[in-house]
Structures are given as structure tokens and as C-alpha cells.
Amino acid sequence: MNRGTLPIISRLQSLQAPAHVAPGGARIIAAASDPNPLAALLREVNETMLGRALTFESRIGTNLTLEVSGRRVLRLTAASGLAGAESCLSEPALEDAHKDDLIKLLQALAVPNQELRVTTTPIDREREGVSVGLPVALLADLLLVDLNPLAATEFTALEAMPTTAPSPKVAPEARLFAVPDPPPVAVRPPATAPVAPEAATYKTASADFLGRFARGTGPVLMAWLITGGDEDGTTEGPDEMVSHLQGFLDDEAEAVSHQLDQISTAPDGPICIVLGATLVEGHSVLCARSGEGVLLGVIEGDGTQTLMQAWSAAFA
């Protein structure tokens, strides 16, 4: 089973599961025998896309109401029988600073082996849009809850399979995703993949496209080299920097090509990515591909306008 299908299968199984309704209309999401009602609570939030107020109530009468939208907890609007709720209740929008308090409330409410119920009501659309809230994925991460119940069993086998994904070379904390890895994307987007609503005028690139682009960018592209294609071995800039770029491509050529495939909308068209802290100051990495050639370079300062001009001009 593909890793990317697990959330879908989980949702389908959830939809197929018979609803158990308690007297009064509340839906029972965790039975008295459930050792982890907290997981059921978070999954309920995770499955809520439209703006809704979810009131969770335990068998002993403690309850809280969360306004939820787009898999985020926007705010806590009511709580009963739970100590320490005031700090979250007073906030018009829950933020990262409130996550610990909210987690304590959720843990106090969703006690193991105790029935948990939920009732759902719509919320005002205006209220839905005024807050970003706390992602349920973050809460689940902190509480070690798997939002996709299938994952615990299915992933065991999947994780053992070899993967073509590149190994990160940086410390995990430096990476963006302290959350699940990106779902796998086809190496080449299929012909039927949705195409971004960009201009319909598709241009073709000449054999010397990358060199023309690099030279057209000017001195802001302080060091670069091209590997593969008609311009293989073309370089410019300080030898030490070019050598470093060459070493990187020697080691990571396949992974770079895979990454470019993932961001490309036209499988056979030229593609370029510039990656930087701010894009307009400091240094940025530039990587482009046209045909069999790959250009890798380093930008110093603000190259935004010259880059775009050079990119367009290179098609001429």
C-alpha cells in the first residue's frame, strides 16, 4: 500500500464504521474499553475540514468545546469540570504558546478506558477565518498519537522497504518537517496531472539554454557549472566554489533530478529553482535543468529581477 493512500483509507474506514449514538444525540467516539480516547479525539479533529464546534464530553460529565476548521484547533470556547481551562478560554485564537495548556486539558478529559462522546455544530464563517489555530498534526505529534490508525500496522512493513528518497545531510531539527515525510510524488508527473493555471504559451528551450540563462543572469550568479547536455563542463566563478558545487552534483545528481521532477509542471520543459533565506539578500542556491543538462550555481544578493529577465531571454 502506498504511504500516501493511508490517510484516505483511514478516512474511508472511519466513514464506514457504524456510529454509536448515546442518548441525547451525542456520538460515542471512544468506548469504555478504549485505552486511548485521546487518539479518537484528535482523529475527530483531524477529520473535520469545515468550521465546526466539537463538544467532547466524558462519561463523568467533564467536557470542552473546541472550534475546529481545516484540521486546526482554532479556539477553546467552553469547558466544564476541567481545571486550568481559563488560560485557553480567554484566548480569541489559540497559538503555539497555548499548546501545552490545551494538551493538559485534552488529557484530563480523555481518560483511558472511559467513554468519550462528541456533538458537532456549525460555527460562524467569519469566526472560521479569523484564526490560524493549532494544527492537529502538531498536537498528535506531541502526544505520540498516530492520526492514521492504519499506519501503525501498515507502515511497519513499508518502512522496511528500500526507498529512493535522499538521506538528509542536516540535523533533523534544521529540516522543515518535524512531521511525517512528504508523500511520495511520481518521478515524472503523469500527463493527466493537474497543470497549474499558468500561461498557455509553452516555450521550448535551445541546446545552449542553460549557458545563456547563466550568463544572462550576470554577476549576481557568482559561481556556477553545468553538467550533462551539450554544455557539459561549462563553469564560471571561483574554482573553490565551483569545485564544491561539482562535488555536490557528483554525489547527488540523481536526487537533484528527482527533486526537480517533483517541482516541475512540464515534465520535459526547463525548470529552475532558487532557494534562499530571504531571496533578496545574502546567498541563494540556484539549480536549473534543461534537457540533459543541469546548472547549479550560487547567487549573491538580490538576483530576483535579473534572474527572471535572463530566464525569459534564454527562451528567445
Binding site: 545531510k169 542536516v170 534544521a174 497549474a196 499558468e198 500561461a199 498557455a200 504559451t201 509553452y202 516555450k203 521550448t204 528551450a205 564544491h244 517541482i263 516541475s264 509542471t265 512540464a266 520543459g269 526547463p270 525548470i271 529552475c272 529553482i273 532558487v274 532557494l275 534562499g276 533565506a277 530571504t278 531571496l279 545574502g282 546567498h283 541563494s284 542556491v285 536549473a288 550560487v298 530576483t304 534572474l307 527572471m308 530566464w311 527562451f315
Partner: peptide, 16 residues
């Protein structure tokens, strides 16, 4: 490794 954690990306294609 070279410059620090990137927060911005510009992707240029043939059509936008």
C-alpha cells in the same frame, strides 16, 4: 550547509 536554512523558493518554468 552553505548559507543557512532557506525560507524562500522561486520556481521558474516555461510558462510562469
Amino acid at each position: 550547509e552553505a548559507f543557512g536554512e532557506p525560507h524562500g523558493a522561486v520556481v521558474m518554468g516555461a510558462d510562469g
